[in-house]
């Protein structure tokens, strides 16, 4: 589904990713771990098309197409979703309107009919339950005045509605208490299907107790320094990152 080869990326003069290669197949869950500043959030944002990073070398193939050649909205329409580490507040635009706009633009791009507001509300009811959120939230402005936990749940709600093929969760666990973490993980697990894939970017192993990865990659200094199975996450939890960073 996703094939990253020798990806280099910079902000200004500073190179942040220094040759990343990674393959993600349908049905898989990958965890990308690493110390602060290792480039893992950058990788997530580059896949989604963040305008602040310049890809200087390498390729990203997504379902046979050049992902880097697509605008962020086209990536989303083709099934790429990034749950933001810091979701953006949009005062005055309700969650319901925002999500319906996104949902319908994606449908339109796929040649499907747009859904009317009433039908859409029914769909939302079901999705809200998944992340244990109240319907009142639909009529509040996007993320405006939300607590940290509410923002993260809202990201998973968006993911549940948009049903991406490739979901990337960027530090979705940071700042969550244990209950919110369970809810978020429960949502992600419920959305898992054989034909979609999930990439979890995280600093801590904690979330991986609830969402069990098939592969764990350790990013340090802009490179993947080690890959392994789910047991690698536990090893990292016990030993920290230093031994890998030093080895790299």
């Amino acid at each position: 589904m996703l094939k990253i080869e020798n990806l280099h990326c910079s902000v200004g003069e500073k190179e942040i990713l220094k040759g990343i290669s990674l393959s993600v197949n349908a049905g898989e869950i990958h965890a990308i771990m690493g110390p602060n500043g290792s480039g893992k959030s950058t990788l997530a944002q580059v896949i989604a098309g963040h305008p602040g990073f310049e890809v200087t070398q390498g390729t990203i193939d997504y379902e046979g197409s050049d992902l880097l050649d697509m605008e962020p909205e086209v990536r989303a329409q083709k099934g790429v979703f990034l749950a933001f580490q810091y979701p953006v507040e949009i005062p005055g635009v309700t969650n319901a309107y925002f999500l319906r706009s996104a949902y319908n633009e994606i449908r339109k791009a796929r040649g499907d009919e747009e859904m009317d507001p009433m039908e859409f509300l029914d769909l939302m009811e079901a999705k809200l339950k998944l992340v244990d959120m109240d319907t009142a939230l639909l009529h509040r402005s996007v993320n405006a005045g939300f607590s940290g936990g509410e923002k993260k749940r809202n990201e998973i709600l968006q993911m549940a509605v948009l049903e991406p093929k490739l979901a990337i969760l960027d530090e979705t666990d940071s700042g969550l208490d244990i209950d919110a973490l369970r809810v978020v993980a429960g949502g992600v697990n419920a959305l898992r299907k054989p034909d979609n894939a999930t990439v979890i970017v995280t600093h801590y192993q904690r979330l991986l107790n609830y969402i069990v990865p098939d592969f764990v990659h350790v990013l340090a200094g802009g490179r993947i320094v080690k890959s392994g199975g789910k047991e690698l996450a536990l090893e990292l939890e016990a030993k920290g990152y230093d031994w890998l960073v030093e080895a790299a």
């Binding site: 963040h50 305008p51 962020p72 909205e73 979703f81 949009i90 925002f98 999500l99 949902y103 948009l162």
Partner: peptide, 12 residues
């Protein structure tokens, strides 16, 4: 730009 990116990343 970041808010624009956020909306675009949802397909808008």
């Amino acid at each position: 730009e970041i808010a624009l990116f956020y909306m675009k990343s949802r397909g808008i």
